[in-house]
Design a binder for these strands. Structure first.
Lengths: 241, 241
DNA sequence: CGTTAATTTGAGACCATTCAATTTCGGTGG
DNA sequence: CCACCGAAATTGAATGGTCTCAAATTAACG
């Protein structure tokens, strides 16, 4: 049962939303996952490559991104331990975006056919995985709104609210304080801003007493004010289904 | 078999990607769909409401959107005949965004439990529907990139490329010409711009000889140049799985 | 403790916005 | 078929949020 230990973060996350039987967990754990480690900034997947596996993040942070023809980068989502990085690989033949390690990452990969098999056989596993994919999509939608219709301060506040809530739900973080290894360039690429303007906006958020952010530590000093500043509502995270 | 006639646009779209048996189609068609019609601008679904049905667009155009606290609107996606408007309703309990009719719309709705049942029983139907949901998510991702990292001209060119390709794939449109009932305000809300700037940008695209757009007719006069101007690559549409 | 990455600062330029007014278009009724 | 109406598109001018480019400062790491 060393396997089910490895998948702990996944099962813990799933159990927040639905009840999987021990048989379900054993079936998933027995799929023949292989572990890998990636260094900071390493690519876990590249746009245009044929898909063969699905990837579960065990430890660290990762993000999805696309590189534009002029070389600029748009980050599409961040991912924390216990989340899948590429569920779409199950059914899509070619990757449509890149996945990159934000910190050193431990991941577990499984051939997509095996994952599809267990989903075929086990309705509860199927439901858990599809729920993940649908919530991913909900987050993408909110990000469209964030970069499309909010100004710099709102965008960054919103992003910080999202990450804080997700980290908290995953049991990472210590009260209002979180390990926060994103650089200002990551924040900029996630919000469609430049690093320079991100810097100035973060200073404004600090000055307003909403957050403290340095040395890779984020503290939410005034949650209500930050949520207000970011026009943030947690519905889209579907933390309660 | 009047039911399967109604679902024609859906089956035609699905058959482009995978082969459904007649049994599969009959099962889907027999679900007890009910038809409704909505007028232009009517809401088909509202954020915050509990979900009970899944909606298939039979005719017309619709879009998903969110309204921000300041009243501004961000459009998240457009949908054409034969596409589902809310597959996420299958598993999510509360709608996280609004769905609105862009033109008069004919839709078919089915209780989500029935759709889940047929998905449970029929692997091919399951695959077809999940493929739809995953491709929706891929489009959302590309929209994050579009509003996040492209300038006005690129955003609008990209949107026009996407819609032209999808309309063409659905058999709508006559060569390079399409019925195009979007107002400039729709385009603005989809690209994160203002209607005024959208107007000026469209004029630039016209002047450059890339498109012709008036009286609700869009013509792509120079596809290659428009795709280039919009940094457009069709991979994310996954038209070939 | 040196070296590179990350953050911070300043000033100027520009893309997109705002606000308001005007013109054109699409549909309707006389 | 024309007059009318509201919606949509267009135009102008001024404002402003964000970007660009560079340089300086600070932090991270071996």
């Amino acid at each position: 049962m060393t396997e089910s230990l490895i998948l702990g973060p996944l099962f813990r996350r799933w159990s927040r939303r639905l009840a999987l039987s021990n048989d379900d967990k054993t079936a998933v754990a027995g799929l023949g996952w292989s572990r890998k480690q990636f260094q900071r900034d390493a690519y876990l997947a590249r746009e245009g490559e044929p898909t063969s596996v699905c990837t579960l993040l065990l430890d660290g942070l990762a993000y999805r991104q696309k590189i534009l023809s002029d070389g600029s980068r748009q980050i599409i989502s961040f991912h924390i331990a216990g989340e899948f990085l590429d569920l779409q690989n199950c059914l899509l033949e070619v990757a449509d975006h890149n996945v990159q390690a934000l910190t050193r990452c431990n991941i577990a990969v499984v051939p997509k056919e095996l994952l599809l098999e267990v989903m075929n056989d086990r309705p509860n596993v199927r439901r858990a995985i599809w729920l993940d994919a649908l919530i991913d999509a909900s987050v993408f939608r909110e990000w469209v709104v964030n970069v499309g219709r909010r100004d710099a301060k709102q965008r960054i506040a919103h992003l910080l609210c999202e990450l804080a809530l997700r980290l908290k739900a995953a049991g990472l973080g210590d009260g209002p304080m979180f390990d926060f290894p994103l650089t200002q360039e990551h924040i900029a690429d996630a919000t469609g801003l430049t690093a320079v303007h991100t810097n100035r906006t973060l200073q404004a958020l600090r000055k307003a007493g909403l957050i403290s952010l340095n040395s890779s530590k984020l503290s939410i000093l005034d949650w209500d004010a930050l949520a207000e500043a970011g026009d943030f509502s947690e519905r889209y995270l579907h933390h309660s289904v």
